[in-house]
Nucleic acid binder design. Sequence first.
DNA 1: CGGTTCACTTAGCATATAATAG
DNA 2: CTATTATATGCTAAGTGAACCG
Length: 787
Amino acid sequence: MGKRKIVLSESDSETDLFRKDTRDYDLDTPLSKSGDLDIPLSKTVTLSHKKLKTVKNEDEVDEETSLSGFTSNTSVSSSPVKRIKKESKSKSKTKTGTEPKFNTKAKTSLKKEVTESKLIKEETPGEQNAEGEVEEDEEEEEEEEYKWWEDNENDGSVQWTTFRHNGVLFPPVYVPLPSHIKLYYDGNPVDLPPAAEEVAGFYAGVIGTDHEQNPIFRKNFFTDFKKVLQENGGTLNGVSIENFSKCDFSRIVDYLQQQKEIKKQLSAQEKKQLRIEKEEFEEPYKFCEVNGRREQVGNFRVEPPDLFRGRGAHPKTGKLKRRIYPEDIVLNLDKDAPIPPVPEGHHWGEIKHDNTVQWLAMWRENISNSFKYVRLAANSSFKGQSDLKKFEKARELKKHINTIRRDYKKNMKNKLMVERQKAVAIYLIDVFALRAGGEKSDDEADTVGCCSLRYEHVTLKPPQTVIFDFLGKDSIRFYQEVEVEKQVFKNLAIFKRLPKKPGDQLFDRLDPSILNKFLQNYMPGLTAKVFRTYNASKTMQDQLDLIPNKGSVAEKLLKYNAANRTVAILCNHQRTISKTHKQTIEKASDRIRELEWQAWRLKKAMVQIDADAVNKSKNKKFLTKVIKTFTKTEQKKIHKLIIDRENDRVQKRYIRENDAKKFENEEELGESVLKEWLQKVEEKKIEYNKEVESDEIEITTKINTVEKIEKQLEKLKLRIETSSIQLKDREENSQVSLGTSKINYIDPRLSVVFCKKYDIPIEKIFTKTLREKFKWAIESVDENWRF
DNA sequence: CGGTTCACTTAGCATATAATAG
DNA sequence: CTATTATATGCTAAGTGAACCG
């Protein structure tokens, strides 16, 4: 038995997509290394061993029920500790020698940024830099830039030597509503102190979303709202607010809506002006100087106050996320760096000089009392370096994966309960790409990963089918009905055995740290999450290998996306189906049906002209196979669709043109014009009706020869084909999110190589920001690179 | 150790912007 | 050219895992 195929069932149509996946996992490839040690003994195991003596029965697995039918193998297995030299990851091309200078473009870059998209095309692509190398990137760089991936010196713990920036950007102060816009309570206007009014406004902002329907959200909001109100001396006009259901936010909602509308109505110029002003204002915060080099800051804006929008059933959702002031902020800079200016009348909470970390600023947030950090952008050297490290680590796992798989298979029959649990857990993480699953407290949403799986999350269906059903990260449902190996099934049964009951931990001897410590034995730095990266990239490599190098760019892209989708499904990256999705799909299929009707009609006309035309046509296949006959009812339906649409269009056009004329002070079109237009549509309708009755197409000058019709048919055929493919693609992607895996899991070098080999412009696969983020990948691989 | 704290990656949704159909 | 739809980006919540601490 070499490869094991896991076929996911297809029973539940709702989540169908996530269970059609078929994957191969090579668990049995012979090991490259023999003579692996047969002694586990990390500290954890030693401890269990001690435990074994005292509470033997608890820790020993009951062989009777669990091991039947399997070749027994009693030896405790483990992995050799493999020491990998930390070698410098990339062969350095000659480094530029001198320390790169700090990019002084900061001042001018604003204008550049703003107009870039337009200007770029006018500039010579590929300028020469000092060394005479040709810069191939579409964004010109006057100054040579730092290519950290060609730089060898990076030891790890020290992140920077100089580190300077301008601090953070605070959200604007609250501007109270106009005095006539108020909250109403029990039908009466309420005068709120500004602080409370602000919170009421936050709630108004949530009306119309799902949060509004969430009782927890409402309760938490109302509690905090009352608190703020009280802290600010209560309402100003003596109204006492006790009951949420008596609160009427509608005027505030309308006002906010109106403000939004006004903003939208601004002319393009005004919008542009505002944008430029905003840019200018933000400019100082956008960049950070790291070791004399200019790098982009990611989230330089402090999070504004709002109601906390927790995902899933978060107990704290709806609570007020308080405003952050400079006093709350800790800044991190180098010792000699100038201290950024603070808003008038304030001071920074603390100034630190910690060069072992990457953050520029941080504050403590009040919802779960954790930290928020201001850090560099995704295209920075900090992020890039850790990204590269992450993928190199995943590639390192290639060398150990066979050993690991062999071991966990073997350990499925280990006598020690912990070892068995480890084996099964690693199996689940490896095969189903589960996350580690750390412990969570009661004031968070109840979500789980591997180690925190509970009794009720796994259902066993003999002989060897397992149904996983739980909420994972972000409360995204993980539902899979799968066949597993017998021994896995048996072990899961053991882990669920009495006295365990719903609510109990499946892996009661495990937590991520135990698992990770065990994994380190195979490879330094190996942790549970590495498996996700590894399997995602490995899957992508395998999928890409299957794509034939032929066809149009569009076709190849479609295949790339299909490969991407496989990975996204593996990682369970979902997105909510948009509210309009069903409608969109319906509309698109109606549209296709209409196109088919047009084709059918043309076909009829063709036959009318020449009875044998179909047989002679080079589109014979299309004409006979694809085009189905339309019944009279169907025809009428389509006619109605077209006529309604036409009428609609005419009405709109009439209104629009008159609006324009009014604006220009011209004479408006009279009703008669509209009537005339509508009449034309009416004529068409009559025409259609006649067509249905007589079952004959009227031959017009436009379509009076077979050749002309063929030409039109050709066009229609193409449109139908592309529309159908598009529709199918969209349908398949409707609940799968491709982005997350592209950004975080698929080694970007795979995509770069794919583009090179298949002659696809990288822009088709990586957006501008992704190209910046993955610059290290784009510039460092040749087409023979493999994951 | 075993829990907590800190720092970092990963995640989906909301909104802004671009592309495309009509 | 406009309205609609698709895509890209911004935002911040929610994970992981190592270090720290008593």
